[in-house]
């Protein structure tokens, strides 16, 4: 009797709905990561330039997105933007916008740190070869920085995936929201469904996040050797 609640997954198409919800979480995380990493690279390079104004503005941007909790960013994008500036996109693209800006901010700091820790002799040799600024970044600094920033980037990716569980707060049908629908719909028949549904969601997040975090750990170990 106590374990019969596992049957909740066999009812109707509950399983495929949970997987569908998971897909929503994954694609929002993936699109935000791709856009955020691209934008973050540009901002990170800009932050290594000597211009004080650019550096100051970008620093403000970084601190803003690092300090403000993600849930507040999501609320800003979903409720305040449409009301104040009449920007009205579907909820999932609002989430992509908020996540992209957040990822870009965090990644710009990773890129800046990595570029600055490329040995000075590399930059000087590049300049001595007659490379211009663009070529210097393109062929010398960014490829070497990429190796250094990889573990931190993977770590950021796992954080973004985990944070998608907040999406239900802005009416997006992510995996947690679908799980809650199923729990409430089956409350009478399966009072223990809550344990099984959240258990499955835990396993699903784990399956996605664990390989990434293991990869990052291996890279870090390799790097420190």
């Amino acid at each position: 009797m106590a374990h019969s609640a596992i049957n909740v997954f066999l009812e109707g198409n509950n399983i495929s709905r949970i997987i569908g919800g998971l897909w929503t979480s994954v694609w929002i995380a993936a699109v935000s990561l791709v856009l955020g990493l691209a934008l973050g690279t540009i901002l990170g390079v800009l932050r290594t330039l000597p211009n004080k104004v650019i550096r100051f503005v970008l620093r403000l941007y970084l601190e803003f997105f690092r300090i403000v909790p993600t849930i507040v960013l999501l609320y800003l994008a979903y409720y305040i933007l449409p009301r104040t500036f009449h920007v009205n996109w579907p909820a999932s693209w609002m989430a992509v916008l908020a996540f992209t800006l957040w990822v870009a901010a965090e990644f710009s700091d990773i890129v800046r740190g990595a570029i600055e820790s490329v040995p000075k002799s590399q930059r000087e040799s590049g300049l001595a070869l007659g490379l211009n600024k663009m070529q210097l970044f393109r062929y010398v600094l960014l490829p070497q920085a990429a190796k250094l920033e990889l573990p931190a980037t993977i770590n950021l990716a796992t954080r973004v995936i985990k944070t998608t569980s907040l999406l239900m707060m802005i009416s997006i049908m992510d995996v947690v929201a679908v799980g809650q629908q199923i729990i409430e719909a089956n409350n009478q028949q399966y009072p223990n469904a809550v344990f099984w549904v959240y258990g499955l969601i835990f396993i699903l997040y784990f399956i996605i996040d664990y390989p990434l975090s293991a990869w990052s750990k291996r890279l870090t170990a390799k790097h420190s050797r």
């Binding site: 009812e11 109707g12 198409n13 509950n14 495929s16 709905r17 929201a177 809650q180 629908q181 199923i182 729990i183 409430e184 719909a185 089956n186 409350n187 009478q188």
Partner: peptide, 14 residues
């Protein structure tokens, strides 16, 4: 609502 049977909820077929 998506989680308040029987007023607004989602059945097993989604």
């Amino acid at each position: 609502f998506g989680d308040l049977p029987p007023y607004g909820w989602v059945n097993a077929n989604g």
